[in-house]
Simulated assay, not measured.
Amino acid sequence: MKTLYFDCFSGVSGDMVIGALIDAGADPVKLVEELKKLHIEDEYELKWKKVVKNGITSTKFDVVLLNQHQHNHHEHDHDHGHGHTHEHDHDHGHTHTHEHSHDHGHTHTHDNDHDHGHTHTHDHHHDHRSYQDIVRLIEEADFSQQVKETALKIFKKIGEAEGLIHGVPLEQVHFHEVGAVDSIIDIIGTAILIDQLKISVIKSSPIPVGTGKIRIDHGIYPVPAPATLEILKGVPIEHSEVRFELTTPTGAAIVAVLAEEFCSIPSMKVISIGYGAGTKTFKDHPNVVRIIIGE
């Protein structure tokens, strides 16, 4: 039986999870092929590369949105996982631009390189894909049942948290940034890679959330952002002195849904280890999530 352990000593985001899964041996080329089943590949391009974070070689995964504002390749990747708004500005002022750009901005621009004519059919709602749009996207794609169920559970977790905070029923939740393509890729990509690695049991360390304040659509908020904290209800969180949003809503939802137990590293024979890099670099510790896979 294959066990996967999320060692989130520096928090977790969607792109960090994908980077770590690739680093641990999942096949990114197959991931690219599988994701084509969503039929939105004219909106993004996937990139991954090895980077060194405070002495640890890790894999940095990026969703590059195909439109003119995308130049910065989502510096927010650490969070782009998360989806919405809140997280980027915290550290790089400019960031927030993408938070929206990445979702609405890109809308119809894909034509720049590959407009396959059909493009605009969906463009009009890129920036505000609703929870139901995303469910439909997943259900209509030709994924295995397991991949669909995992992805739908993670999106539902985020949707319910957003709905609760904003006071709207799940069906009416619009994901601004969470509906952004990069979040869709991070969540469905995680489901695809876990399935590919044939993992049967998932456990995780407690989740450090960081400290300080961040700017989100509605103003200045404390870390963790309200959606992140809501998603982590029932999950052990850990204090951290790092003044930064270490865990994004997407990262939180992935671990909250997948992990059946929060504990220290379980007894197992280790077969592979993967490190997934976040965007930010901290002075005293590597900004990576570690995945340990064993029998």
Rank of each mutant, 00 (worst) to 15 (best):
V63E: 05
I185L: 04
T95G: 05
L197A: 04
M1F: 10
S200G: 09
C8V: 10
L31A: 08
T247Y: 09
R243M: 06
A24P: 14
F9G: 09
H102D: 14
I199Y: 15
I138L: 13
S204M: 00
D15G: 11
V52T: 01
F282W: 12
D284R: 12
H84L: 12
D62K: 15
Y221L: 14
G167A: 11
I291C: 03
L38T: 11
H114C: 00
I254M: 09
C263Q: 09
S13Q: 06
H166E: 02
M268T: 01
V64E: 03
K198G: 05
P236Y: 13
S144Y: 06
D15M: 03
E245M: 05
Q132F: 04
I194G: 12
I192Q: 00
F155N: 03
T190R: 03
K49L: 06
F6K: 02
G219W: 12
S10H: 08
P266E: 05
E41F: 12
H78S: 14
V255L: 07
E87M: 03
P169A: 13
E75A: 11
H174R: 11
A161D: 14
D77L: 08
K233S: 12
A259W: 08
H122N: 08
T211F: 03
H120L: 04
A227E: 10
S272V: 02
G278Y: 09
S144T: 15
A24Q: 00
S204K: 07
G159S: 13
K280R: 10
D103C: 01
L246F: 07
D79R: 05
G93N: 15
V201I: 14
D113L: 09
G210R: 15
G276Y: 03
V135T: 09
A259L: 11
G210L: 10
R215A: 05
T279S: 15
T95P: 01
H174D: 13
V168Q: 14
K30S: 07
Y131L: 03
V63S: 03
G276Q: 12
D115Y: 12
Q196D: 13
E177H: 05
T247C: 04
I18K: 04
D7H: 04
G93A: 11
V51I: 15
H122A: 12
H94C: 05
